[in-house]
């Protein structure tokens, strides 16, 4: 099936927030193509009457009581932060919105 292009690899890298280099684009395009060709054979077995399995163990309704559990102190929460200010994580300016 796939013949994955450089542009597609670039698109995937953007989606995955990876600032890949030009050299990597070439390398990954080749490798991804080989891997995806190989794994595409899952389609041979996957007929419509086979239900998909998302979880290895068939559990349902695993719920927690709505009871407080001690968390982290502010200082612990921020201890691993690359930068912090005023009790908050300091990050570079955010583009766009959500």
């Amino acid at each position: 099936m796939p013949s994955i292009s450089r542009d597609e690899v670039a698109h995937l890298a953007r989606l995955a927030r990876l600032a890949v280099t030009e050299d990597e684009l070439d390398l990954f395009a080749g490798q991804l193509d080989v891997i995806l060709q190989a794994v595409a054979r899952v389609g041979e077995l996957a007929t419509s009457d086979v239900p998909p399995t998302s979880h290895a163990v068939p559990l349902t309704n695993v719920f927690r009581e709505d009871v407080l559990r001690p968390g982290l102190r502010q200082q612990q929460a921020l201890a691993g932060a690359p930068a912090a200010e005023a009790g908050r994580f300091r990050v570079p300016r955010i583009l766009g919105e959500e």
Binding site: R64, D66, V67, L68, R69, G71, L78, G87, R88
Partner: peptide, 23 residues
């Protein structure tokens, strides 16, 4: 609710920043 959707941290509005957090 008393606690968050997926952890036992409180949901009260207006607390000091990053004091109602856990891993």
């Amino acid at each position: 609710t008393n606690t968050k959707m997926f952890c036992g941290c409180p949901t009260t509005f207006g607390a000091e920043p990053n004091t109602q957090v856990c891993p």
